[in-house]
Design a protein around this nucleic acid. Sequence first.
DNA 1: ACTTGCGGGACCACCCGTTCTT
DNA 2: AAGAACGGGTGGTCCCGCAAGT
Lengths: 199, 199, 199, 199
Amino acid sequence: MLQTTARVLQRRGYHGTAVSTVLDESEAPRGSLYFHFPGGKDQMVVEATRLAVAKVSAALRKSFEDAVDPARGVRDYAELAAKLMEESDFTFGCPVAGLILDAGEEVPELASICREALDEWSSVTVASLKSAGMPIGRARALALVVQAGIEGGLILARAHRDARLLRTLGLELEAIVRAALRRAARSARKKKSPRRARR
Amino acid sequence: MLQTTARVLQRRGYHGTAVSTVLDESEAPRGSLYFHFPGGKDQMVVEATRLAVAKVSAALRKSFEDAVDPARGVRDYAELAAKLMEESDFTFGCPVAGLILDAGEEVPELASICREALDEWSSVTVASLKSAGMPIGRARALALVVQAGIEGGLILARAHRDARLLRTLGLELEAIVRAALRRAARSARKKKSPRRARR
Amino acid sequence: MLQTTARVLQRRGYHGTAVSTVLDESEAPRGSLYFHFPGGKDQMVVEATRLAVAKVSAALRKSFEDAVDPARGVRDYAELAAKLMEESDFTFGCPVAGLILDAGEEVPELASICREALDEWSSVTVASLKSAGMPIGRARALALVVQAGIEGGLILARAHRDARLLRTLGLELEAIVRAALRRAARSARKKKSPRRARR
Amino acid sequence: MLQTTARVLQRRGYHGTAVSTVLDESEAPRGSLYFHFPGGKDQMVVEATRLAVAKVSAALRKSFEDAVDPARGVRDYAELAAKLMEESDFTFGCPVAGLILDAGEEVPELASICREALDEWSSVTVASLKSAGMPIGRARALALVVQAGIEGGLILARAHRDARLLRTLGLELEAIVRAALRRAARSARKKKSPRRARR
DNA sequence: ACTTGCGGGACCACCCGTTCTT
DNA sequence: AAGAACGGGTGGTCCCGCAAGT
């Protein structure tokens, strides 16, 4: 049922998601909802979002772990997202972006879940960049570019129903990250042996 | 009234926007709505979105025109967005992102307006990059990064209620664009006098 | 415009007739309605009904006048109604029956117009029967049968979208009326020379 | 609730019947309607009509069964209708006549229910006449007269708020039917012993 | 004199998330 | 656990004024 909720949330946003729709699609009886989720729709949405967020976190972590470097990890994650979009007929997307935009102010708990999710995903990227030798400040800024790029890319791909956008974006972000990693490596060398700076 | 509609759409998305809310906030009587918008809510939303899109287009164009180069134009636009977010108590955002996410499939005309808006904004950026000497292919890819970055940045900033995110992102994107412009300039020189390439 | 009103009234009844529909179908400007009919919808309906009633009265009178006897007049009228039904795609009908059934209690003036119309039509039939030699009492009773039969026949024909019903009914009513006329004539003779009565 | 619906339908027709009126009069809660009638107003109207039709069918059958002959059955039914009209303050009437006149084209299922109801009632009369010895053709034509007469009589009685109309009509129809039955009996004898025909 | 453009608000059918009762 | 009940809210239409135009 939570998965059905998550799916409908993706497609229609918070306000567009009627509990009856979820009930129908998950073929669950009407009354039992308030047994499992005494908090009603909001609780159901919150838990469904938590679950969806955890999936994304896992996928993101795996992308970085399996990749030879963070740059490739970013690209692999974009590729994964592109594949999922195609498979879901462009219904897939960031599980929190829509909620941020249409339920931000009315369901505070949901908003904070979204924030935490974004923070966690950002931390994963930052950690990967740091472990590749990038100083924390640069890593944070770059992770912001990556995260914003991916979030925006998901929206653009959905709008155009075209997953290629995400793939191109993945390649571009990979290049950007790789260039930043090279620059960071150079800076690091420069610091250790300042005489050889600039050359 | 259209502006009120646009404002409410920003905050609550398509499904969360009740015509009665718009009516109340704009202090307009219920019956006169369907004189001006015989198509009802959908027509009202469509026209409000068109208006908001036009505003964004104008602002984007102005940012590029007033800036010394496209890189600075991107940063200036991010800065403008950051300012608007603060002024609107983090209610400002992309006028089509939310609609894409929660009304994509049910109001086809709205979806196509969103697509066209994104295309137009993208074209503006591409044109600016091209006129700065970047080849069309690179310009397109870079514009995608910029557009996705801005879109994503608006969401992140809204989620965290923190406009600094947008400013940092603006600086990063500026650097990315500037680097790309430099590279493009170098490539151009190389082509003209290949012997002096790379040094 | 009144004719359009009458037509729509036939099809949808009083409550189903929206002034805007009438306005659209008669291509009349919206505001001019309340210039010509300061009383609004009700006045328009009342006048349209009056007009339609007058038409029916004229047709009914003509049927009786042109016919060799009242019996044939009844049948001719039924035949006329059948033809009109076919021509109007089974939209034609008694202009007051529908109003009686769905606006009887809320628009008193309309109700009284309907009553008067029925009375007038009945009088026409009674007069015709009387002038054919039938005593007033019998004429009244028979006119009731005829009127009820026609009214009911119009409804049945509309329901089945089949004008043959009205034609058969016309033939039957003709026979009934003719038999009654014969009986009346016999009674009259009997009264004048009572010895030859009954044989 | 269905009975309330039927009652309001009688008084105001299809378009004049607001669900809220029905809800108020039956003191039912607003929302539970769409649980019992997911099809909304139309389904409610359809079911209410079906129920009312069934009642009429039963009453009609009983009238014929309890009567010594079909002629008396017709009169008894008219008498019953007259009594019901008086008791209901002239609100009672044919449950389908009004619907035929004001919802014929917009709710197809309702229209077909009305047709079927008329057919059934007609069959009952035809069957009764046949079982009294009348040939099928004559029975059909006569049943048409009876049915149209009753339908029309109900409208006239409602318009004049006078049940005596129905009673007189009942007597007249009884006489008509009895005369027809006698004629049918004579024809039948004639056929069996043609020599004694006509005398 | 007659039309137009626009307001104005009551109301309608329908759907919502929720809570009883069993 | 689950069908039934609940009432407030949804988008939309209704009939009707009222100013300014022609």
